[in-house]
Design a protein around this nucleic acid. Sequence first.
DNA 1: GTCTATAGCTGGATAGAC
DNA 2: GTCTATCCAGCTATAGAC
Lengths: 211, 211
Amino acid sequence: MSTKTSNEKPGSIRARSEAVILAAAQKEFILQGYKGATVQSIADTAGLPKANVLYYFKNKENIYHAVLQLTLDTWDRGIGDIDSSQGPVVAIEKFIAAKVKMSFEHPQASKIYAMEIIQGALHLKEFARTYLRQWVREKAKLFQVWIDNGEMKNVDPVKLIFLIWSTTQHYADFETQILTIMNRADYEEDDMTQVTEFLTDFILRGCGLKP
Amino acid sequence: MSTKTSNEKPGSIRARSEAVILAAAQKEFILQGYKGATVQSIADTAGLPKANVLYYFKNKENIYHAVLQLTLDTWDRGIGDIDSSQGPVVAIEKFIAAKVKMSFEHPQASKIYAMEIIQGALHLKEFARTYLRQWVREKAKLFQVWIDNGEMKNVDPVKLIFLIWSTTQHYADFETQILTIMNRADYEEDDMTQVTEFLTDFILRGCGLKP
DNA sequence: GTCTATAGCTGGATAGAC
DNA sequence: GTCTATCCAGCTATAGAC
């Protein structure tokens, strides 16, 4: 993971343009889907002429790949690891907190990722088959050790990981629905805190790590 | 909810064609997105000429609306209610079982719904603002009564509903990822049973309804 | 590096024969 | 009710002036 997308000086005109385009593209791909997002709409959102966008990225497919790469880098930076040094309670607490933070701070990344998976993960199959599968197996092993040592209840570790993923990502992917149901325009300051507390509390109890 | 999409005789040629087209459209809309799915591709999947598809549905937008309506009807039939007559344990058990069943038996419906929400819920805002918001408030009130009566732990009822939705739907929406990680081609017979058991067990414990 | 113009193609939708 | 042919809008991508 963490493959640098490009490697020019950070302040350069190219670097800045690419960043603006990618942010615009991410937004458009989420709202309109791959086919629905047009190079023109991406350019408009980025505030650049269409030709410039194609000058930097050659073609639409390349833009999409760059957006996906950005998404995976974000994922990796946000929750690349589980801290297993201090036992299951701390590990789960930190893991949930990191995932919730990701969902509230980078909902776009979560949404792009979710859409890719729902649509069959054509571009992410390789990522899932290698990196992600490995990741899940490693972390599941950690949990299994704690279970075998009687440090936590016997809950299927893989299903536990899926549960933590789904409950945390939900606040990013289903943002629109959650806000509509709660009759609110945006998440507020302490929504993230409350969600983190609720999920940590609930999941620790589910793992038999809390009264 | 439960608005009949059309009302001709079930055996009629029109009824059969419409059903075939909608099933094909659902598949295509998931795989390619709204813009990416072409009337031609829907027709091909349905095994009909393009003109016939447009003969039945007038235009692409109408096909999509019909698919969404079908999705909401499925949602409604599957988990339209929570049985509150026998206390929180039975209510939660039945609710989880119904949602998991939905996810394994109608993953397409869940996927179409998820994509709509992720993309901003343009077509479902009204459904969420009225029906869904009301539904959540009613059910939350049930949980609140049980909490006030000391029949279950004090967990935020709305967040609990979101948690049950997210964990159950995950097995439909992220099907591809789950199967890839577990290195399997398809879900098998007892996957549904195991997931139901795991989630029921875990969530009841989270609610303080199990040792 | 920026932008205009346009070639070339795809796809939605209709007309009209059967 | 079924299907072919076709029109036209909109999109990607490139050529080339500045």
